[in-house]
Nucleic acid binder design. Structure first.
Lengths: 99, 99
DNA sequence: ACGAAAGTACGATGGCGGTCAAACTTTGAT
DNA sequence: ATCAAAGTTTGACCGCCATCGTACTTTCGT
């Protein structure tokens, strides 16, 4: 729980989660659009993995990242959905309820 | 969004939210069981208030705290519920879905 | 008016986490 | 074998946040 919240509180890591949600499949570490260096990205992937939010596996020289959506939804229903919704670059979250 | 996550990532603040959820009504600042000093508690109440998680109002010399449950649920459905469930001191969160 | 109780404001401090660069490992292609 | 690409590891650094104590304000009771 504490781990999960500490994971998603960082904007870079939330961006990773959001990009995984919006993609059709898994994404390699280098396939993300992140404003940090490679070593910092590695750090973030580690945090996400240890928090149980993503799963990682090798595909040649690339390390693929898969969102563990179903498992997270089971423990924290609504959390991922709320994050992804609020992170949408285009759209007005404040007007979402006002229509 | 960022504010809300930064608010609930702190264990002391999550404890405040949990105690508010478990109580029948509002609670004064001094009515909480917190492992920090009075000034630190004030700091936490401020963070929670600015994040929109609680509402504060005066009652004599006491400042009452009210959880804005409905409003938070509307923007982040499932978030408060997931937090309170996972924070229960007695009980097995992992068995919550299987039990 | 006086004192006590409840919070707040402020300044200082310590530790943790995000960040980077450089060196290293592993895999794949020529 | 050799080189390139993709990540990892390590060490160092810096800023921010939680924390505290003290002083202050406000409200209530006598």
């Amino acid at each position: 729980m504490q781990r999960v919240l500490e994971a998603v509180v960082d904007p870079v890591r939330r961006s990773i989660v959001t990009q995984l949600c919006g993609a059709s499949g898994d994404i390699a570490c280098g396939g993300f659009d992140l404003p940090v260096s490679k070593s910092t990205a590695t750090h973030h992937f580690r945090i996400l993995r240890e928090a149980g939010l993503i799963r990682q596996y090798y595909a040649g020289t690339s390390r693929m990242n898969a969102l563990r959506r179903d498992e997270v939804d089971e423990v924290f229903p609504g959390l991922l959905d709320a994050i992804v919704t609020a992170e949408r670059p285009t759209g007005d979250p404040e007007r979402a309820t006002a229509g």
